[in-house]
Design a protein around this nucleic acid. Sequence first.
DNA 1: CATGATGTCTGCAACGTTGCAGAGCCCGCA
DNA 2: TGCGGGCTCTGCAACGTTGCAGACATCATG
Lengths: 335, 335
Amino acid sequence: MATLRDVAQRANVSIRTVSNVVNGYAPVSDQLRVRVEAAIEELDYRPNLIARNLKQGRTGMIALVVPELDVPYFAELARAVITAARQHGYVVMVDQTDGDPARERELLGRDSRATMFDGLLLSPLAISADELRRRGNRVPIVLLGEHIFDGSVPHVAIDNIAAARLATEHLLGLGRRRVAAIGDQPYTSGETAQLRTQGYRQALERHGIEADPALVVPTVRFHRRLGAQAMEQLLALPSPPDAVFCYNDLLALGAMRALTRAGLRIPHDVAVVGLDDIEEGAYSTPSLTTVAPDKAEIARVAVGMLVDAINGGATPPAEIRTSHRLVIRESTAGF
Amino acid sequence: MATLRDVAQRANVSIRTVSNVVNGYAPVSDQLRVRVEAAIEELDYRPNLIARNLKQGRTGMIALVVPELDVPYFAELARAVITAARQHGYVVMVDQTDGDPARERELLGRDSRATMFDGLLLSPLAISADELRRRGNRVPIVLLGEHIFDGSVPHVAIDNIAAARLATEHLLGLGRRRVAAIGDQPYTSGETAQLRTQGYRQALERHGIEADPALVVPTVRFHRRLGAQAMEQLLALPSPPDAVFCYNDLLALGAMRALTRAGLRIPHDVAVVGLDDIEEGAYSTPSLTTVAPDKAEIARVAVGMLVDAINGGATPPAEIRTSHRLVIRESTAGF
DNA sequence: CATGATGTCTGCAACGTTGCAGAGCCCGCA
DNA sequence: TGCGGGCTCTGCAACGTTGCAGACATCATG
């Protein structure tokens, strides 16, 4: 690989001048510029970005860390983040933790590659705010999605309680009275799920319906298969539900699959609502009513905050609530 | 951020010794090691990876470039690549081109960030082998997926002709005789699609069935909506098909959606086969028969070749065919 | 013609790290 | 006691780039 030095030698100018030509910094006479550009061309010189990064103390890269990249929600979010980052001149390194707490913690550890990035977008599953706070002031971090939040780390998420309430009230509005919930996670790291359960309960309460504990089915993760299993469990109840709010679309798609297999009609026998608005739900049979977070907005806001933190240094840690809306499709609207 | 120098000062040793402790290179006495480690701890020192990279001439990062990250196939592939790369000690920068030829070419251009990576995995849509060859010997590249190949760039893909033939013959084996194909791309950059069309034709030929041009519907891209549109077009024919081979699962899911909406039964009226084996197809209603490429194998082989090229220097450009198999589900097997 | 202003170009140092070669020390052995 | 060898530790230089300060030439101006 040709370096600035090689080009300088060939063009018979100083290294510095070549650098000036490459970056368009200082004024360079046309004569020299032409000569330098010719040398660049002949040697097929390309700037060594690593050296440039070292010198400038920045890489122009941010990292996006998600649990699983092939979960449609994260894939769609990743796409939005890449697009948003690009508009600020950043590229995105995507990594996944497989939901493994140890892998999440690696990020904060001593040998983390985090120093290669100007900033970090993290969608945490297991890591606590406490751990994050203790990490000292290193690379700027913005959290994506809900998590216990103590004000020390900026984060961007929808209002999970309101979103869950909206979904549940939609089902109640259809006249359903035995509304189940799939996806609760009543243990430490399941804050998002717990908030959604709160929203679900609030909606029931507002309609004067007593919550039936048997109708709230926890799942360790938010995958199709677990949604199907949970639905089967609900159908086996003495008095099965006439509607289900699933904490994400994958659970809902799995639940619909189980309903169909059981010979039940959606929404006639059981209405289904999801959350995430992944593209798959718009094409499923039946198509899925869902609460849609504005992923582009999440990405835009999060990347914006991160870039501010990178440039400005001290942005006040903020907790941003992005918008969501109900998208009504066949799974609650007739077929 | 503390540097080696800071730690060295605090521990009263040379910079070099600190470096040795950090990297475990030379033997260091326990006494010194403890002192250095204490200083590291107190200053919360972390190695500057950019400087290390510059010194060592490698970054430990490879880039994966795909058209669209939220297309399930690419998301699943990306996950497999990240996993495979991790086992070689590499992390993966994922970028997407949105299928924009200009964005693909940027990668090879002078100001590309490609110099930040030790290697490049590229799933090209628009770029030609010719352009790739001309790029001179820079970062090692391995291509993913089918593309016109002249032996100058290594690439990894399934045998598209065989895969398409397998799908089509499965439909013919069910006794279907009007087998349609959705997804042809009879223009420059559509080599993958063209190969699948060849396989489709070969299967028809082997069964002595004359190909009906009206049954081959091209689509500009491989998305659900286009699959639905193509299916509607086929249903409008005077003599509609009794089976469809879709060039990927998304097209197939869209097609099934159109069939269901039209009140037709799958597979009773029309059988459907896709290609890619995305998880979504296992949970659709009906679930989707598909030809499954071994994505883990693709990732493993491609990353392996890339790492070899990075280390060894000159690996012979090879064209690797990875395996595929037919996964039979409800869309061709009764409901 | 002297002067300063302007316009080009350059050398030096530094970013933080690691490779290399060698310095100093201590130990065991003759 | 002297010497060689092994074990620790260190200083220097370099990776390829850019910031800075300044050198030099040219030009306009008084």
